[in-house]
Every structure is written in C-alpha cells, then in structure tokens.
Amino acid sequence: MPARVYWTRRLVLLGTALVLVALFARLLGGLSDASDGGSDRASTAGATTTTSPTEAVTTEPVKKKRKKKQTPTEPPLAEPTGPCVSSDIVATPVVAEALGDTDVPITLNLRTVSTPACTWSVSPETLTVSITSGNDSIWSSRECPASIVPRDVVVRQAVDAPVTVVWQQARRSDEGCTEQRDWALPGFYHVEAAALGGEPTDVQFELVVRPSGSDHQDGDA
C-alpha cells in the first residue's frame, strides 16, 4: 500500500490514544475533586458539632453568689467579781399597769454605778420601796417587808437586772401591814426606790379603777 495510507492510520491511532489519555486524566481529576469536597464537608460538619457546645457555655450568663450578711455579735456580759456595795446600786422603778383593789407589780431595774458586775443580796434590809401622794405616805416596804422576797441577784453596769416588788391589793400600809388597811383611791402616785445608802429614784404612775367583771386578786396583807 502507499506510504500515505500507513501514515494516515498511524495518525488516527495516535489521535485516538491521545483522546483516551485525556479522557482518563479528566476522569481521575473529577474523582480527586469529589474526594476533597467530601473531606471538606466532613471537617466542616465536625467543626460545627465540636464548637457548638463551647459557644453555648461561653454565652451563658454567670450567676453571682450572694454574700450572707454577718450579724454583729454582742460583747459578752461582765462576770461578777464579788459582792456589791449597796451604795453602788441604783434601783429604777417601773409600773406598767396599776389597777385599784388588785396587786400592783412594781419592777425595779437594778444597775451598778461604777462596778462592772457584782452579786447583791436583795432583802427588806438592803432595799426600800415607798408610795406617796403629795405629802401623804400611802405604802412602804418597811411596814410590809413580805413584799420584797430575799434573793441574790447579779447586778451589772451595762444592763438592767429586774426585780419585782408587789404592792399588795393597792392598799395603804400600817405598822405590821394588817388587814384593816384602806384601799388607795384612783389617781396619780409616786413610787420611790433606793438601795441602802444609795440615791433614791422617783417615778410617777397612775392608779386606775379596776374594770368591772375582772377577777379580784386576793393578796396576803
């Protein structure tokens, strides 16, 4: 056959081979791009799942703990160092309510003048209480000593030590505190209290009529 035919066949085969090589290279390139894209999507998805909890934690508001208020503690009371001197005691009377024909409790708030704390023996010999109306003497613990119950009390300079004395049935007193005493009339009175050798304290109060229907309190005269 002529040489031209051989060269034509060779060129056709060569062209076919080149086309096949190009198609095969393009096919390999497409597969490579597909695998890269999948890995990118996988990494992106993995990054999303791992960073979401972190972002949720960082954006959550932090709650502050409230500090508890500390209540101030009071200083301890002084301990008694020995017996009190009566002249160092101040007795301040307080009458919350005074009803005629009934027992009238009189609270005596005891304090020391200079001693931080001491022990005092309360008795009719160390304490006196009297009730007056102008120049009229109405009642006295010296005539009715049973109204003061003997006891030992710790008296301090910083706080009151309350002691109760009873004005029995709101009656007048007499020598021996007999049962023949008259009842005090409604009105204003003064109660005076003092420790032996101490300064007396005077407080005014009002004796009022006992409401009708209330129970009568019988006290020992």
Rank of each mutant, 00 (worst) to 15 (best):
P53F: 09
P211Y: 00
N135H: 05
G82M: 06
R9W: 08
S52Q: 14
W167Q: 05
S212P: 00
S130N: 02
T132N: 03
S32M: 12
K68Y: 08
G29D: 07
A184C: 05
I148Q: 02
T128V: 10
R9Q: 12
H216D: 04
D103A: 09
L13K: 11
Q204V: 11
S137K: 04
W139A: 01
L28Q: 15
V159E: 14
P61M: 05
A221I: 00
A96E: 14
T81R: 03
E125C: 01
W139G: 00
W120V: 10
T58Q: 15
A3Q: 09
T126K: 08
V5G: 01
D36N: 15
P53T: 12
D40Q: 14
S39D: 13
V163G: 08
T71C: 00
G100P: 01
P200L: 02
D174Y: 01
T71G: 00
E206K: 07
V62K: 15
A158K: 15
R10G: 11
K68L: 11
F188Y: 04
E55P: 04
G100D: 03
V85I: 12
A3T: 08
T126G: 08
S140C: 01
V113R: 15
R171I: 04
V155I: 14
P53Q: 11
D152Y: 05
G197A: 06
A195D: 04
T115S: 12
I148V: 07
L185N: 13
R142N: 14
V159C: 09
H216N: 01
D182F: 02
G187R: 04
T49W: 11
V90Q: 12
L77P: 10
T178S: 15
P53V: 11
W183M: 04
L185F: 10
L27D: 08
W7I: 10
T44F: 13
D152P: 05
S32V: 14
K63E: 14
L110D: 08
D36Y: 15
S212K: 00
A221N: 02
P150H: 04
G213E: 01
V90K: 09
G134S: 02
E206R: 09
W120H: 09
A96G: 08
L18N: 05
E79R: 10
V21N: 10
R181K: 02
D136H: 05
R172D: 05
R156M: 08
V209W: 01
V95M: 03
A47C: 12
G197S: 06
G29C: 02
R172I: 03
A22G: 09
G219C: 04
A56S: 12
I138P: 00
S32K: 13
Q217D: 12
R142V: 14
T71W: 00
E125S: 11
E55K: 13
P75R: 08
D215C: 01
D88P: 06
A34Q: 13
Q169T: 06
T73D: 10
T8A: 14
S43Q: 12
P83E: 06
W139Q: 01
S35T: 14
R10W: 09
V129F: 03
V153S: 09
